[in-house]
Design a protein around this nucleic acid. Structure first.
Length: 820
DNA sequence: GACCTGCTGCGGTATG
């Protein structure tokens, strides 16, 4: 074969397919074949995978032409994907390509569901290219011959890099990349990413620090597709509740839209919400039975696969889903997408819109269905964000000591490592560029003798130092480590099974513990009755009752993004005077007028605080519009600062727009704010640190960290340890370590994670900075305003409290006896 | 004036 043969072959194949080589694909191919690294930035469905697979293939075909660089030299290309399903899809595709082109190219796959036989085969002979998840890649590094395996790898591609980057799975990927670069300094690294705000940073994280960014290509697919945002607006504002997040009131309008198109995807924010929508539609519109399905993360994989298949073959008219359908499996695009409730971020909204079908050139449409009155503002703000093409950042995870500890152990289980060389290698990753020598020493100690307070226990002595190399000799330690690799720590969940044996999915212990035999709940779109709980499995049978409980899962709580909240503040400020042509704002007028009448509508230069007294007590409502996490932090801060001025405790509640502090005594806020700056940024960290909640929050975070860092063995597969047991040991370890050690990095990390992720410290600082420039308006209201009302309702649901329960009961007793 | 809030994802028991 001659050089250039590859290009020719691919061109011919393209012709037979009647495909056109898109501009960005050409560019990517050129850069790749010139030996460069970089990133391809393209939306789903644009042929982004081919942009790299084809040039890799060309290189392969051409290289076979050179004697000495022949096939069978082992693994040369690694393709990392975040999803097993995605790996499967790609693998199938690539095998097909090779078949059609009559090519000898061995593409393999290695994920958790690869068969044991395949894995055995890979031990002795690796394929030319391997599609793999970050976790499985780490498992390969825990093999004794890992350097041998990766010796000839010249290309690594990371698919969906924007998804991985901002998680600990991304950190894992960074570490593996650094290792591969040490083995082969000429490694070419390519990322494939959807559009995010921080594309440059994404590229830097991918390449590691020290790699000059100019030398890495950024290849963008031109996609200036127009996206129209249409709101589903009720005929009367009374048809939308003031509070609530289910949105079911507008079901008739939604069904009108669904009827008009062949297939529709309804995205909701929670798993329970999909269940509610499914049930409501089936009851009101029974004709949808059989052509409608549900898809969320707690449904059994088999059911989800069925739904995805049916969607692919256009056998379903409607699928109600959570973000489980956000990425991954490429089904044929659906005709219509409806988002129910706030998508919380502009980027996510656009991503979901991208699932909708479109003729070339035509504009695609996404419908927004508000779930409460104020979300009409969000509809307009989303449109602003889409029009201005503002996208949120995905910040990479920094300083995750737990992930690093796990990695050290992985390498020690594998070939072992020499510490100075590895230290230098790790410093090249973006995540650990600021790692200090002392921290490094602590980590080495942690894996070899256990952290200082654990040194008496042998089970924490895992790694030994032999002739300068850190290695794991114990087979038990090695096996336990392989069993607990990865950074995803899930709540222990129970399987749900029909009496006949079919698995439906999973629910949480806390929900099941409230059930008695015969109790009915809704799951997977069915009404089922609880039969028994045995060995982590909940058995149920079909029920004909249409009354039953709604399953609740404890999940993540995404806050409104700061980009979106900026648009909301702007829109709100001018909503009364200048609603423009926006129908949403027009419809909202009565509510806005009521707000203005009872209180005010804050403009951009104003922070609104409302105070009112009800029979519940004295309420303070603050409206920074900064997302619920920042509000959580601010409420802790304010509660702490006020409690230093007077003996007072608060019940706090928050939503994405503001927060409430409820107490049994009135607070003279006017007077206090005249004297001290409650919203000051000074001592921010200290004040939060001193509040009761910080330790509790850190303790909860610590469970995850301890699991990743290998402090707690999660048990053998199938034989789960009780959740309570794990929680107990994590909290015990936390207490011991924080009490007896000054520099425990894992404890430090727990607090860092609380500040960074739970309280969004950086964003809170920005918000406090903004507030310091704003005029604070304190309005005394006679009744809770339309802004305040939803937060009160939320509190009744949750009952968070910063007081001790006993104190609370004492106070309530005192209150009632006074009333007598 | 009145609400059924909380996403997603991986891996694993067998020797070089």
């Amino acid at each position: 074969m001659k050089k250039q043969q590859g290009q020719e072959l691919i061109k011919q194949w393209f012709k037979t397919k009647n495909w056109v080589w898109a501009d960005f694909q050409k560019k990517a191919a050129k850069a790749y074949l010139a030996g460069k690294s970089g990133m391809v930035n393209a939306p789903t469905g644009s042929g982004k995978t081919y942009a790299l697979w084809l040039p890799i293939l060309i290189r392969h075909i051409d290289s076979v032409a050179h004697p000495g660089a022949k096939a069978g030299k082992g693994l040369q290309v690694l393709w990392i994907t975040p999803l097993r399903a995605l790996s499967r899809d790609l693998h199938r595709n690539m095998e097909l390509v090779c078949l059609e082109m009559n090519l000898l190219w061995d593409v393999g796959i290695r994920t958790g569901d690869t068969t044991y036989k395949d894995r055995q085969q890979q031990r002795t002979r690796m394929p030319d290219a391997l599609i793999i998840t970050p976790e499985s890649l780490h498992i390969l590094f825990s093999q004794k011959n890992s350097e041998q395996i990766f010796r000839h790898v010249h290309t690594v591609v990371i698919d969906e890099w924007h998804e991985l980057m901002s998680t600990k799975r991304g950190t894992q990927t960074e570490l593996a990349l650094a290792r591969l670069r040490s083995i082969n300094p000429d490694l070419q690294t390519w990322g494939i990413s959807a559009t995010i705000g921080n594309l440059d940073q994404a590229r830097q994280v991918l390449l590691g620090v020290g790699a000059p960014l100019e030398e890495a290509e950024l290849i963008k697919a031109k996609s200036k597709k127009k996206l129209a945002v249409r709101s589903i607006i009720p005929s009367k504002i009374e048809n939308l509740p003031w509070s609530g997040y289910m949105g079911i009131r507008l079901v008739d309008s939604v069904i009108d839209i669904v009827r008009k198109s062949k297939t529709t995807l309804i995205f909701t924010n929670t798993r329970s919400q999909t269940e509610v929508w499914y049930r409501t539609i089936i009851e009101k519109y029974p004709e949808f039975a059989g052509i409608m399905a549900l898809h969320h993360g707690s449904l059994d994989r088999e059911i989800r696969d069925w739904v995805e298949d049916a969607l692919h073959q256009a056998r379903l008219k409607l699928v109600i889903c959570t973000s489980s359908l956000d990425l991954g499996v490429d089904f044929r695009p659906v005709e219509t997408v409806i988002q129910v409730g706030s998508p919380k971020s502009i980027a996510r909204f656009i991503q979901r819109a991208g699932r909708s079908g479109h003729q070339p050139g035509a504009q695609s449409v996404i419908y927004f269905c508000p779930t409460n009155a104020l979300e009409l503002i969000e509809a307009v703000s989303l449109r602003d964000g889409v029009d201005k093409n503002i996208l949120e950042d995905r910040p990479p995870v920094m300083h995750a000591y737990d992930v690093l500890a796990q990695w050290l152990l992985t390498l020690a289980v594998g070939e072992g490592f020499e510490e100075e060389a590895l230290f230098q290698e790790i410093k090249k990753t973006y995540a650990y560029q600021y790692l200090e020598r002392a921290e490094w020493e602590w980590l080495l100690g942690y894996i070899s003798t256990g952290s200082p307070s654990l040194q008496v226990y042998d089970e924490f002595k895992k790694v030994e130092r032999i002739e300068g190399r850190y290695k794991v000799l114990s087979r038990k330690v090695a096996m336990r480590h392989r069993l607990s690799m990865g950074t995803i720590v899930s709540e222990t969940s129970l399987k749900v099974k029909m009496q006949q044996g079919k698995y439906l999915g999973s629910i949480e212990e806390s929900f099941v513990s409230r059930l008695k035999p015969g109790d009915v709940f809704f799951f997977g779109g069915m009404s089922v009755a609880f039969v028994r709980l045995h060995e982590m499995t909940v058995t149920v049978k079909k029920s004909s009752s249409n009354k039953g409980q709604l399953v609740r899962w404890a999940g993540g709580r995404m806050p409104l993004s700061s980009q979106l909240s900026t648009f909301i503040r702007k829109r709100l400020a001018e909503a009364l005077e200048n609603p423009g042509q926006e129908k949403e704002l027009d419809r909202l007028q009565p509510l806005l007028q009521l707000q203005a009448q009872r209180s005010i509508i804050p403009n951009m230069d104003t922070l609104l605080i409302e105070q009112c007294a009800t029979k519940e007590g004295y309420h303070i409502f603050v409206f920074p519009f900064e997302g619920r996490l920042v509000h959580e932090g601010m409420s802790i801060l304010l509660a702490y600062r006020l409690s230093r001025l007077m003996p007072i405790g608060f019940s706090v509640a928050m939503n994405d727009y503001g927060f409430e502090m409820l107490s049994d005594r009135s607070v003279d806020l006017d007077g206090i704010l005249g004297e001290i700056d409650l919203f000051s940024e000074d001592n921010l960290v200290d004040d939060i640190y001193h509040s009761v909640n910080a330790t509790e929050m850190a303790k909860r975070k610590f469970r995850e960290i301890a699991a990743i860092a290998g402090l707690m063995f999660q048990g053998y597969p199938g034989k789960h340890q009780k959740a309570k047991h794990l929680q107990a040991s994590a909290s015990l370890l936390f207490t011991v370590m924080s009490k007896y050690e000054d520099h425990n990095l894992l404890v430090k990390q727990a607090y860092q994670e609380v500040f960074t992720y739970q309280l969004e410290e950086e964003r809170m600082r920005e918000a406090l900075g903004r507030i310091s420039q704003q005029q604070i308006r304190i309005i005394k209201t006679s009744k809770p305003s339309p802004f305040a009302f939803p937060i009160m309702v939320d509190r009744l649901r949750e009952q968070l409290t910063s007081e001790k329960l006993e104190d609370r009961i004492q106070k309530m007793l005192a209150q009632y006896s006074n009333a007598d």
